[in-house]
Amino acid sequence: MATFSFFRNIDQGSFTKVIKFFKIKHPKKNEIILRKGDPGGNFYIVLSGRVDILNDAGIPISQLKSGDVFGEMSLICEENIGATVQAGSDCRLLYTDQKHFKTILQNFPGLHTYFTRLLARRLTDSNKIRSDDYASGMIGKLEEIPPEALFQTLNANQKTGILTISHLSKGTARCSFRQGALIKASYAGGKGEAAFYEILREKQGRFKFTPGLPPEDFDIPEIGYFMRLLMEGLQRIDERTAPKGH
């Protein structure tokens, strides 16, 4: 287990302590492990067997094997489950709950990079499956990948181009990226940081990323250090949604 990609981000001296946060589950073939739309619950690592990710028609669109992980996005983004996960064979899974998962993330910062890269790869794979014109950019729905995860993907992959998000509560948003840096943002009459923070609050919409920028945009300074912007935006959301008196 220590050789699994997830545990390679945890130093050898801490491995024994971290593994105590996990339990083992033995789903049978065709058993539903996670169901789309349900609240997020556990983070899973496949020990043995095969796990299938299903589309809305119940057809497997990708498979996970020993060492692969799932369930992390609903815990990181505090969203409902984004896709149904089914045991493709009898299998063994390691799992831990949200509380212990967040404790592990806090203690091992290297896992943030691990999950960002994992998300970027999955978004790319998902778009290849869904879109025949993938070469023109990435397309998708915020219901499948929330804004903060989408922005992290573009940043981590050092993308250059324009992200357009339509069907939002206040119209259409546009963001420009240069090698992963956010250089423009406009939404609901606002621009820059203010627009970026408003976009982060959205839960539904359709996005398309178009590679390339007009020449005049290559010299525009970035709005700010990306991770600072993201953390500030998420903190503002938490403050707005926190119960009064807390």
Score class of each variant (00 low, 15 high):
Thr3Asp: 14
Phe4Gln: 01
Phe6Trp: 10
Phe7Glu: 03
Arg8Glu: 15
Asp11His: 13
Gln12Gly: 10
Gly13Gln: 12
Phe15Pro: 02
Thr16Gly: 06
Lys20Asn: 14
Phe22Trp: 07
Lys23Cys: 06
Ile24Phe: 02
His26Gly: 08
Lys28Asn: 13
Lys28Tyr: 04
Glu31Val: 05
Glu31Ala: 09
Ile33Asp: 08
Lys36Ser: 11
Lys36Ile: 09
Gly37Thr: 10
Asp38Ile: 06
Asn42Glu: 14
Phe43His: 07
Arg50Ser: 07
Ile53Lys: 10
Asn55Asp: 12
Ala57Thr: 07
Gly58Ala: 05
Ile61Val: 14
Leu64Glu: 07
Gly67Glu: 00
Phe70Glu: 09
Met73Val: 11
Ser74Ile: 04
Cys77Gln: 12
Cys77Glu: 15
Ile81Val: 14
Val85Met: 03
Arg92Cys: 04
Arg92Phe: 01
Arg92His: 05
Leu93Ile: 08
Leu94Asp: 03
Asp97Met: 04
Gln98Cys: 01
Gln98Ser: 06
Phe101Asp: 04
Phe101Met: 02
Thr103Asn: 08
Ile104Phe: 03
Gln106Leu: 05
Phe108Pro: 15
Phe108Ile: 09
Leu111Tyr: 06
His112Trp: 09
Tyr114Leu: 12
Thr116Leu: 14
Arg117Val: 14
Arg117Ala: 07
Leu119Thr: 13
Leu119Tyr: 08
Arg121Trp: 08
Arg121Leu: 09
Asp125Pro: 00
Asn127Asp: 13
Lys128Met: 09
Asp132Trp: 01
Tyr134Ser: 10
Tyr134Met: 06
Ser136Gly: 11
Met138Ser: 10
Met138Asp: 11
Ile139Met: 11
Ile139Asp: 02
Leu142Met: 05
Ile145Thr: 15
Ile145Phe: 11
Glu148Ala: 08
Ala149Val: 12
Ala149Met: 08
Phe151Glu: 14
Thr153Arg: 00
Asn157Arg: 15
Gln158Pro: 00
Gly161Gln: 04
Ile162Gly: 12
Leu163Phe: 04
His167Pro: 00
His167Cys: 07
Leu168Ser: 05
Gly171Leu: 02
Thr172Gly: 12
Arg174Ile: 12
Ser176Asp: 03
Phe177Lys: 03
Gln179Asp: 13
Gln179Ile: 01
Ile183Met: 07
Ala185His: 07
Phe196Ser: 03
Phe196Leu: 09
Tyr197Trp: 09
Arg201Ile: 02
Arg206His: 11
Lys208Ile: 00
Phe209Glu: 03
Gly212Asp: 07
Pro214Phe: 01
Glu216Ile: 03
Asp217Trp: 13
Asp217Arg: 15
Phe218Pro: 08
Asp219Met: 02
Ile220Phe: 10
Glu222Thr: 10
Glu222Val: 01
Ile223Tyr: 03
Gly224Tyr: 04
Gly224Thr: 06
Phe226Asp: 14
Leu229Asn: 03
Met231Glu: 14
Leu234Ala: 06
Ile237Ser: 02
Ile237Met: 10
Ile237Val: 09
Asp238Thr: 12
Gly245His: 08
